[in-house]
């Protein structure tokens, strides 16, 4: 479980996060949604510790990240896995070496055990046979899957995904969403996904936080979204004609 309390973050004069508080539940896919520039990425960077908020608390199972020393923070980070928007794979390493990197750095496993674990992770994300390729030789979707394999190599307790579907086609996006959801359940992780992909929201959004102009605007599940009366949420979610029709059908069904 990750709790954040009254997080505030500014860049020079501009206040980006204005006191956001919420709880991200363990074993669930927690989504942070919002318009571009609403502060989603800044919030995630504050949660993982890449940025330091001016005010507030970030508690990982009751351990406050902002009050931790350097060693404690490093120890906590080994319990985290992160999937970046650009996959952020190391260009100079092969797929297998990328997945083995955290194991090589932090585990006491032998080289053979590390290789076995890395291959298991690659197999889990359906990438058997791609281990000798370099990141530049595989597709964007495959890169994302390698990044997931790398993120889960050390059996993390917390998984963070920043725009996991950006730059991917809808079909591949569904595969990535399903994979993240399955892995969350399988490993019992606290997963936080930063997205503005409405397909992701509707398919894997178990606990959704909608932020608007740096503030909590709405919280709920994918089931609650369709029946919500929050105007800002509705104008964001149902911006496309397709989702407007879905909403109308849902409302009509409720009336009947």
């Amino acid at each position: 479980m990750i709790e954040i309390n009254t997080i505030e973050k500014s860049f020079e004069e501009k206040k980006v996060l204005k006191g956001i508080s919420t709880t991200f539940k363990t074993g669930e896919t927690n989504l942070i949604i919002g318009e571009s520039g609403s502060g989603k990425t800044v919030l995630m960077q504050c949660i993982v510790g890449l940025l330091t908020p001016e005010k507030g608390e970030v508690k990982y199972d009751h351990r406050d990240l902002l009050k931790m020393g350097k060693l404690e923070t490093q120890k906590l980070r080994r319990e985290m896995g992160m999937l970046f928007q650009s996959a952020a794979l190391f260009d100079s390493m092969t797929v297998l070496e990328n997945v083995m990197f955290p194991l090589n750095m932090f585990s006491d496993k032998t080289l053979r055990e590390q290789t076995r674990r890395a291959l298991t992770c690659l197999d889990r994300v359906n990438l058997k046979g791609a281990d000798t390729k370099f990141p530049g030789e595989i597709s964007g979707g495959m890169q994302k899957r390698v990044a997931i394999a790398r993120a889960i190599a050390l059996n993390p307790h917390y998984l963070f995904c920043d725009e996991p579907n950006s730059g991917l086609d809808p079909k591949t996006s569904l595969v990535i969403d399903a994979l993240i959801h399955e892995i969350t359940k399988e490993y019992g992780m606290t997963t936080i996904i930063n997205t503005h992909d409405m397909n992701s929201v509707m398919s894997i959004g178990e606990n959704i936080l909608f932020i608007n102009k740096g503030k909590n605007e709405w919280e709920g599940s994918k089931e609650n979204i369709l029946s919500s009366n929050n105007k800002k949420l509705n104008s964001f979610i149902f911006a496309s004609d397709l989702f407007k029709k879905v909403k109308e059908i849902e409302v009509n069904q409720v009336k009947e």
Partner: peptide
Amino acid sequence: VTQQIDALEIMGVN
């Protein structure tokens, strides 16, 4: 710029 340094930091690597 490709966030590879951020990825190292998140893993707990200096």
